[in-house]
Design a protein around this nucleic acid. Structure first.
Lengths: 156, 156
DNA sequence: GTGATTGCAAATCTTTTGCACTAAA
DNA sequence: TTTAGTGCAAAAGATTTGCAATCAC
């Protein structure tokens, strides 16, 4: 990789989708996209920006997150009423959501297979399939080895 | 079925989970459980109660919905930041979510198959698997006949 | 009667908006 | 310049909370 300096990567992403790379957007894009995939809320990103001496207003954080989402650079994942994460991984994948800790964990797309999807209602098109696996605090019992079947069509 | 009068059904459900069947809870339970499965927001239920001459405060609607959810009589489905539905169908199933209209449509559990679920992280247990199929407004192209594959493990 | 439940209004929290100011092209 | 973008503070929603009044048992 010749030019994946953090700064460049963030800037490239912005220009690639036609967003003017302002100081604020660049700062946020760097926090978001440097150093691998992450899940972050608007509040968290705001706090991070302030902590990194890149003051940005909360409103701008929201604006930017939504612009990036609309541009396909982020994906919004709503886990609870009043709590949504922005996911820098926009490839096909799904999530574990740990309700106790609020933690969101990526599951590579190839580790979850959804089949037999019903036909979309007339006049609509499937935009995305979200699979969220909700986890509760303790694992009193053993965890499932490799497959948990939801639905009945596929035998193990 | 000898006794599935609406009133009885709602009352039974409440007592079955140990919730004192107060006038308000009974009224809300009837609106919720009589007449088949439904998806409803707190605001909608509140409006319905008022319209049905069963005045209940919004706070009580929220309290009751959460109590019913905690008791397993309802399931909460969060579709967007600031918008969640309460689903009277607590059996295994999934949802279409039409982003344009805000409409939520049940998909019977047996119409979606999720396989190859990864193991839950240590110390956790899978509480539920939510599959939400997001629909966008127009269907310019043809809809998928019967299977939309998410992930790569299963061939068609 | 007694503790659970309710209603109201205020408080919280998250997110959006209006508008004057600032900066990128 | 010129227009997009930003910050602030207020507004808007959704949900929760505190507490006195009320109701079910």
């Amino acid at each position: 990789m010749t030019s994946d300096r953090p700064f460049k990567r963030a800037l490239d992403r912005l220009t690639a989708v036609g967003l003017r790379p302002t100081r604020q957007r660049l700062a946020l894009a760097r926090l978001l996209f440097d150093g691998g995939d992450r899940h972050i809320t608007a509040e968290q990103l705001h706090a991070e920006a302030l902590g990194a001496h890149m003051p940005v207003s909360l409103a701008t954080v929201y604006n930017t997150l939504h612009q990036l989402t609309a541009s396909g650079l982020l994906r919004e994942v709503v886990v609870e009423p009043g709590k949504s994460y922005f996911d820098t991984n926009v490839s096909e994948h799904h999530h574990f959501y740990h309700e106790a800790t609020g933690e969101l964990i990526d599951i590579p797309g190839n580790q979850v297979v959804v089949t037999d999807l019903p036909v979309a209602p007339p006049g609509t098109r499937i935009a995305r399939v979200d699979v969220t696996i909700r986890l509760t605090g303790q694992s009193e019992t053993a965890m499932r080895p490799t497959g948990c079947y939801v639905g009945s069509a596929a035998a193990d």
